[in-house]
């Protein structure tokens, strides 16, 4: 009897992510949600520019690679062209919260019926560890070598809190994948974000607090602890907006 298997919605391509990176977990959670909802054959994913740029090789559904930050606009086009398709974007913090802020805000305010998976690890991974819009105050990166100075570079962008002020979006939630309990909750939340689309409810974004041991300069284990000690206090987990009535 098989007790643990690879989701059908993932291909056999080996992931290129660094050891200890949580992208792999998040890919799996997305794929499990697609499998469980039985929507693999009609799902289309939009990959970002950033560490997850090659997500198009990993998800077994039809995939489109978007320009940096434009995934929600591309997803809007796909969804409007074929509304029966289930369309999701998978974006990092630089992609979604910096260069693509306008596309994020406007697809949310239009309540575009898409699912957005937002991976927030507070750093630019693909380019080698530069400051992200979500890097914490004081966080040392390649482009904030003395720590993020909020008087010079401003404060981190809190996407869930910001978007929750809009009337448009259906569902906004922040989860983490640094321990089993959080991963289980993340799974349920991601699945709900897809279900919302299947049920025609509208824009559903799940922000996933993730780790980057390589560019944080930590062991994978320390990185998971750093999420608890530094990331979650700044980015509290929870549901920020849910029109079905579950927001805190």
């Amino acid at each position: 009897m098989i007790v643990f298997d690879k989701p059908k919605s993932l291909t056999d391509a080996p992931l290129h992510y660094c050891p200890g990176c949580t992208h792999g977990i998040i890919h799996r959670l997305v794929a499990e949600a697609i499998d469980e909802l039985g929507i693999e054959g009609r799902t289309i994913g939009v990959a970002p520019v950033g560490c997850a740029v090659m997500a198009y090789d990993y998800f077994a559904c039809d995939m489109v690679e978007a320009a940096h930050g434009r995934a929600p606009a591309v997803a809007t086009g796909i969804k409007r062209a074929n509304p029966e398709n289930i369309v999701f974007t998978y974006q990092g913090d630089g992609d979604l919260a910096s260069i693509g802020t306008a596309e994020t805000v406007h697809s949310a305010t239009r309540n575009e019926n898409i699912t957005v998976i937002f991976v927030n690890n507070a750093i630019y991974g693909m380019t080698g560890g530069q400051m992200a819009p979500t890097s914490l105050p004081g966080q040392v990166t390649q482009t904030s070598p003395y720590g993020r100075d909020t008087s010079l570079c401003g404060f981190p962008v809190k996407i869930c809190e910001m978007l929750s002020q809009l009337d448009g979006p259906e569902f906004l939630a922040r989860v983490a994948v640094n321990n089993v309990k959080n991963i289980k909750n993340a799974k349920a939340t991601i699945k709900k974000a897809f279900e919302n689309q299947v049920n025609g409810k509208g824009f559903s974004l799940v922000e996933v607090i993730s780790s980057c041991p390589t560019n944080w300069g930590m062991t994978p284990k320390d990185a998971l602890k750093w999420i608890d000690d530094n990331m979650i206090p700044y980015y509290p987990l929870g549901v920020y907006k849910d029109r079905s009535g579950e927001a805190k």
Partner: peptide, 26 residues
Amino acid sequence: GTFLQAESEIAAINMVYGVSAAGKRV
């Protein structure tokens, strides 16, 4: 059909990219 006033020219051309990828004239 779809008429959508995009938030920017950049968003508009990327919406075009999405529809085109989906195989429709746009």
